[in-house]
Structure formats: C-alpha cells, structure tokens
Design a protein around this nucleic acid. Structure first.
Ligand SMILES: [Mn+2]
Ligand SMILES: [Mn+2]
Ligand SMILES: [Mn+2]
Ligand SMILES: [Mn+2]
Lengths: 225, 225
DNA sequence: CAAGGAGATCAGACATACCTAAAGAAGTCT
DNA sequence: AGACTTCTTTAGGTATGTCTGATCTCCTTG
C-alpha cells in the first residue's frame, strides 16, 4: 500500500544511467545512442531502461526525442556523484591508490555505501570541495558549485592559465596527462589554439611545450589568471 | 572458450550463500532449512542455489543430504570474511561507526571492494589480527588462525576468564552486551553454569553480576586465565 | 518530394535470483 | 508396517537487466 511513499533505493544500474544522463545531457537531453556509447550497453537496452526511468519518475523521456532528468532524478544522480568523488579522494589520499585506478573502484563502491557512510567519510576527509581530478564535490543537500573554469580548447592564445580540472576516466589518458604534469594546479601559458582542428599548444612552468588534440583539450578545464 | 579459466567474479548472492554454508556447516554440512533461516530466504530458493553452487564447483551438494564447501568455495568464503572484518575494523576505528551498525554496512561493502582495495585497507589499518568483535581476520592467503577460546556456556564455574569474542549480528543484542560491558578484553569470574537450561552467571571486574541465557552464553567466547 | 541511411524501438531470449504452492522423501512413533 | 510430520524439492511466476536481430521513424540529401 505504501508503494508511493516507500522510495526503495535505486539499483546500481539505474544509478549509472542517471549519472550518464546527467553527464551527457547537461541542461539539454541525452540521446539513446549517446547513452548506449557512454554506458557500453546496447541501444535496445537503453530504450528499455529509459521507459523504466520514466515510470519511476526519474527521467523525462519521449520516444525518439531523448531523455533528461526530473528533479528527483537529478537529486539521485548528484547523490552518487558526491559519493563517487568522496570515495576517489579517500582512495588517493589515504589508501595510496594510483590516480589511474580511482575511477573503476569508485564506480562500484558508490552503489554500496550508505548515506551514513558517506557523511562520516566526508567528515573523515575534512569536507573536501574537490576530488583528485579537480571535480567539485556536490554538497550533501544536492548543491553543486557552478563551474567557473573554461575548457582549454576555448582559451585564448597568449593567456596564462591554471589547470583546474582534468576530468577523465580512461586510465591510459590519465596516466599520460599525469606523466606530462598536466594536473590540477599546474600553471600553463597558452601558445596556440588552432581553429582548424582544435589542437592546442601550451607551455608549462618548466618551459616544456605540450600539444593536445581537440578532444583532450576540451576535457582539461582551466582558469584565466 | 576460456570459460574454464576465466573464473569471473562471484555475485553478491553467491558470496553470501558461501559465507552462510561456512558459518552453518563448520566441518560438517548445512541443511536447506538452516541456510534458508540464516539467509532469510525461502527454502525453494536455497535448493535452486545449491544446485548452481555445485555446477560452479563451489559446493558439494547431494539432494536431501545438505551442502558443504569445496576447497574453492572455502577460499571464496574466507576472502569475503577477510573483507568483511577488515571493513568493520575501519568503520569503527576511523569513521566512528557505532558498534551496532558495523555489520550491515560491511555486509554490502564486502561485495563491492576489490582485492587491491582490501590489501591497501589492511595496510592502512596496520594488519589487524581481529575485528572489533574479536573475530579473527583470515590472512590474504586464506589462512585462518584456529580458535583457542571456548564458549562461555562451556566454561567451568569458579574459573576466571577473559572475553575474546562477542560475535553477534543483531544490533539489539550487540547494544545490550556493550552496555553491560561484555566486550572483548573484559575479565569475568564464572559464578554458575546451570546444566538444566544453560543459563550462565558471571561477575565482572567491578563486582557486577550478569545472567546470560543459553544461546547468548554459547556465542560469547572466552579464554581461561 | 522521395529515397536512404542513421538512429531508435520492438520482440524475443537469456541469466540471475527471488517467491508461492504443490508434491515428494525421510525419519519417527505407534 | 503404516501414518505423520517435517524437511526438501519441483514447478511455475515475477522482477531486473542485458543482448541480438528485425522493424520502424525521422531527417538529410539528391
Ligand atoms: Mn571518477
Ligand atoms: Mn557506478
Ligand atoms: Mn559482521
Ligand atoms: Mn554480504
């Protein structure tokens, strides 16, 4: 009888779909194919799940027109993102995990920890505002500080900038960027942003130059100095 | 083709069944009903799962004659027990969890952490030999130190003993025992062990007497001094 | 405006894991 | 031995989440 109030916890799959929609859609909407790609799942599976998310009141979905999160869906997604980022912080700072392995472990643990665990962990960590990749950690009440950085791909040549976020999931990319010192906090001078192919050239604090492809430059966020 | 070598990770359910068999069977075998009870699952579900555990080579099972773990099954069970007890230790010592809430959280987390996490956590904790309830933590290689304590129910009247394990899962029981100071490390004098109903009376270090029912006395382990 | 093709949905399966109800096996008591 | 009771298994269903292959829609392009 209390089915409408029970609000039983969402499953790991549902949670990952919500996060995917949040990541992909931004303020707009996410297509079946984008989600299929992002989640490494067949398109048919996505269609089925979007139907269920709509039934559950977590997503708005019109067949053939993509999906976006409802207010409840957004809350659930941000709850997971908070957990994920706090867990990554713990893994790096206290268990000595390599930067490259944080994501995979957090991707599983985020579904297993309780709210109680999460808040105790936040306490233990001293309530960090950002995770090891520089990504902001949503507050317990679902508030997320608005982004104040811009993608390196949109920086202006000649400008001096500081890297604020290197938000990647693939270990290989992460390892490459870390080896080249392209990590949050690093100072860079933008040498060139080529309009043609989006390739960006930067010089770091030690005078070394780095050339980054368009996709990579788009996912490194910086602040102008 | 490499199905025989792949050894894909076991599911949370399978893991919990293996732990249940390990707990219930000891060196003998576990019956369908005992497992059904222990796991709060219908008997029919247990029968189905025992068939699957046999297929997977994790349990020996003859219909109508109970189940016991194979060597592989025992290894998997102990791997989970190690994780569970390390996690409980972390939750209590570093996150300040109440003693009563450790088990529930660990019961979920044990299935989500990797071997890498587990060993890094063991390092972080300083390789503890026992968890907060006094239960021994299996080594990474699957070794478990043999029990050297005896149940309070089998202690001799007049003997002075030290509590070594208070291995309970129900929060209410745990809370009661903690309130009465019946925790690992505590010194007791055995006043009476009544053969009739197994009720045990003990006097603690402060002269206070405690009377414990048979079931409770059987699950508190002590060492003679 | 009529094709084509990319993208999406539908239909049918499979795997896991649970439940209930009915039927079968084992051991106990007379 | 026969009857009972208790434990177990079987049978048939539900729920979640995935895949493949067939079909349908929509937009772009000629
Ligand atoms: Mn991550
Ligand atoms: Mn995840
Ligand atoms: Mn426990
Ligand atoms: Mn468990």
């Amino acid at each position: 009888m209390s089915d409408l109030l029970a609000h039983k916890p969402i499953s790991a799959s549902v949670g990952d779909y919500l996060k995917a929609i949040w990541n992909v859609a931004g303020s707009g909407s996410a297509s079946t194919n984008e989600l299929s790609e992002h989640l490494s799942v067949a398109p048919g599976s996505v269609t089925r799940m979007l139907g269920r998310l709509r039934e559950m009141g977590l997503a708005d979905y019109e067949p053939y027109h993509g999906a976006s999160l409802t207010e409840r869906g957004r809350r659930e997604a941000l709850r997971l993102v908070r957990r994920h980022r706090l867990i990554e912080t713990f893994l790096l700072e206290h268990l000595g995990y390599p930067l490259t392995d944080l994501h995979e472990e957090a991707e599983r643990l985020e579904h297993a920890v309780s709210d109680g665990f999460t808040e105790r962990l936040a306490d233990f960590l001293g309530h960090p505002g950002r995770d090891p990749h520089g990504d902001p950690i949503p507050a317990a009440d679902g508030t997320l500080t608005p982004e104040d950085s811009l993608p390196l791909s949109e920086a202006e040549a000649g400008r001096r900038v500081r890297v604020s976020r290197v938000s990647h999931e693939e270990p290989a990319t992460l390892a490459y960027l870390a080896e080249n010192g392209l990590i949050p906090g690093r100072l860079l001078k933008v040498e060139e942003v080529r309009a043609l192919d989006g390739v960006v050239t930067v010089e770091d604090e030690y005078g070394t130059c780095h050339t980054l492809g368009g996709a990579l430059a788009r996912s490194i966020l910086v602040r102008n100095l």
